[in-house]
């Protein structure tokens, strides 16, 4: 039976990759002064969610987990057209790796009675891509990753996706509820309308969920995370000639003497 869909879009606040500077003294990347922005692949997720809503009807709710100031990425999503935003914020979430993070998002999607959960391909700051399948696994829902195209079939409670399988593609029909990770760059994200943008920044207030609101306070945070960072090393630089040549002929000579061509 056909009905409208509850669409949940998961978004993340990340340091702006374009705004990371190099510390002139140490030569390392300076990230502390980088602006916090909406993860770029999530723009494709929000766009996908809005188009699904336009096709099927229903609501789009943006969800993020983070500190109180992560509210900014919900404002961005609402400015683009999401109907509402939920902020998962609680000290208990601190230090969560992808296991508890996907649990918190999965529990929220269940709380919101979600039919479709849309995520970006991966975050630009940790780039694991593990959260979308993790959400699906926690709820035992279907999953569609590396999605290039989506076709809703509300009459069958199904979503049909074209997935990139590296060297080809496959068309997969997944039963609802389903978690979708859309390929980075799969669509052209819209630009926020002025009125909606002003609304999102002045009137919109997200509802906040704590870990105990979701009943998962024992299963999140650092203690519930199976992985931990065991140390940081500087990457070993590879020694290179670093020789600037002035002409193509000189380059050909160099490459020939090395036997590279």
């Amino acid at each position: 039976m056909s009905r409208e869909w509850n669409i949940v879009v998961c978004v993340k606040q990340v340091p702006d990759a374009d705004d990371v500077s190099i510390d002139p003294d140490t030569g390392t990347l300076n990230r502390s002064d980088a602006e916090a922005v909406l993860n770029k692949p999530d723009y494709n997720a929000v766009e996908t969610a809005l188009r699904l809503k336009e096709a099927v009807g229903g609501t789009v709710t943006a969800v993020t987990m983070g500190p109180p100031f992560a509210k900014a990425v919900l404002e961005a999503a609402v400015g683009l057209g999401a109907d509402d935003g939920i902020l998962l914020t609680d000290r208990a979430f601190g230090g969560s790796d992808t296991w508890p993070t996907s649990l918190a998002l999965a529990a929220s999607a269940e709380e919101l009675d979600g039919d479709v959960v849309i995520c970006g391909e991966e975050s630009t700051d940790s780039s694991t891509g593990q959260v979308p399948p993790g959400i699906a696994a926690h709820n035992d829902w279907s999953q569609l990753t590396y999605v290039e195209e989506l076709e809703p079939r509300p009459e069958n409670d199904e979503l049909v996706a074209t997935r990139d399988i590296e060297g080809g593609h496959e068309e997969v029909a997944a039963s609802l509820p389903v978690v979708v990770a859309v390929g980075f760059g799969m669509n052209e994200p819209r630009v926020a309308g002025l009125h909606r943008k002003i609304f999102s920044e002045t009137e919109f207030e997200p509802e906040e969920y704590s870990a105990s609101d979701l009943g998962i306070e024992e299963s999140v945070g650092l203690a519930a995370s199976p992985t931990s960072v065991g140390g940081m090393d500087t990457a070993d630089p590879v020694e290179r000639e670093r020789e600037m040549v002035d002409s193509v002929d000189e380059l050909v000579d160099k490459l020939q003497s090395e036997g590279a061509i």
Binding site: D97, T98, W99, S102, L103, S127, T128, G129, Q130, V131, P132, P133, G134, A136, A137, H138, Q143, T145, Y146, R163, D164, I165, E166, P226, T227
Partner: peptide, 23 residues
């Protein structure tokens, strides 16, 4: 770390409560 491998790894790390490190 192919598309299939990452789809699979993310799925199975949850029910087994595994520690999964990507790439």
């Amino acid at each position: 770390g192919s598309h299939t491998g990452r789809d699979f790894a993310g799925r199975v790390a949850v029910p087994t409560y595994a520690g999964l490190t990507a790439d």
